[in-house]
Design a protein around this nucleic acid. Sequence first.
DNA 1: TGAGTCAATTGATCTATGTCAAGCAAATTT
DNA 2: AAATTTGCTTGACATAGATCAATTGACTCA
Lengths: 198, 198
Amino acid sequence: MHDVLRKFINEITTGIIADDEFVHIEKGFFPKLMKRRQFLLHEGAVCKYMAFVVKGALRQYSIDERGNEHIVHFGIEGCWITDRESLLMLRPSKYNIDALEDCELLLTTKEQLSLITDLSLQFLKMSHILDSQHSISFQNRIQASLSYTAEEKVMDLMIRYPSFFNRFPQSMLASYLGLSPETFSRIRKKLLTKQYAF
Amino acid sequence: MHDVLRKFINEITTGIIADDEFVHIEKGFFPKLMKRRQFLLHEGAVCKYMAFVVKGALRQYSIDERGNEHIVHFGIEGCWITDRESLLMLRPSKYNIDALEDCELLLTTKEQLSLITDLSLQFLKMSHILDSQHSISFQNRIQASLSYTAEEKVMDLMIRYPSFFNRFPQSMLASYLGLSPETFSRIRKKLLTKQYAF
DNA sequence: TGAGTCAATTGATCTATGTCAAGCAAATTT
DNA sequence: AAATTTGCTTGACATAGATCAATTGACTCA
């Protein structure tokens, strides 16, 4: 299972991590299996782990004052999932994280992360690259959320993450985009009809 | 001018950077003065610089297909402002960055950034901490944008960035929140009236 | 295998916010 | 100092998307 992480680090850094360096990382992560519908984080708890998704899918969501769910993040293979604010600042989290499928994860703690980034330059480099990528994707997401119509949001999702449509219920994709399931359904139908009209 | 950056690095890392380390950073940044309404980046150009704001204010915005401006970021003293995607991946930017006030900036390039992060551990550490903070604030912003009503968005801005209300035109604050200026004006009036009613 | 749950669609209606226009005061430019 | 521009507010009206409800088919569980 740790081999997947090793491969991931090599791919991201376009390098090959040495055995004696990877051993620090290996020690800092432990495997966890989750069944569908199990929680990794409950709202109100302090987040203890950062998770690397080896296999499966999770979602990170909050519930607003009106009882509506808002999915901020899906975690699929090759993704990292945590509430960084809670993990690093020890604040009660406003998020829940649960498994949408049976999952294989590698978990690490805040302390282990610190240690690993001190001991492994390649891990630090990977972390830095991922932060850049995340920053870019966050910026795109904010820009889309400010300026797109509902239809543009659905189209954008179809383009960026086509596999999401096979993998997650439409009500969850709607939530991820900040739309109602009915609106999502109507727009998707309209877009599929348009495409056939070409 | 570089002293402000030095102080900033020390504050963020809760340390004191050595002279012989800071000299690398100093060499990698050059000062730039901008007048109000001048551009740092035009849409369609490849972004060449990351800017640290020593004094003044800028905004980063895109213009959608309907001709509407959408402000994704304000850069005030102590902020960094760039289009990371364009800078790092050499893509034409979809953003504009211009000065809302006369500004003093320190600019660096992609190459200099690489060099500095190799030569200065403290700069790398600062960069890492800032990325964590940005990640956290992006997540909050996405969550707010998905789940808040217009009124909640205005309230949240009043709480998080009260100084923005003195410093930026309301039409820009509205744009930053994804609201029309009219809606913003009505909601602000309502909230101010509510507050007086307490 | 049947009952219950989940997912999705569709129609009707509602509402939060956008759009358009007008007016006014402050700020900026000439 | 006068003209112009910018910023903001307000009223009237329009609309994109939400809400509610009903229905149907697929999936899950006992």
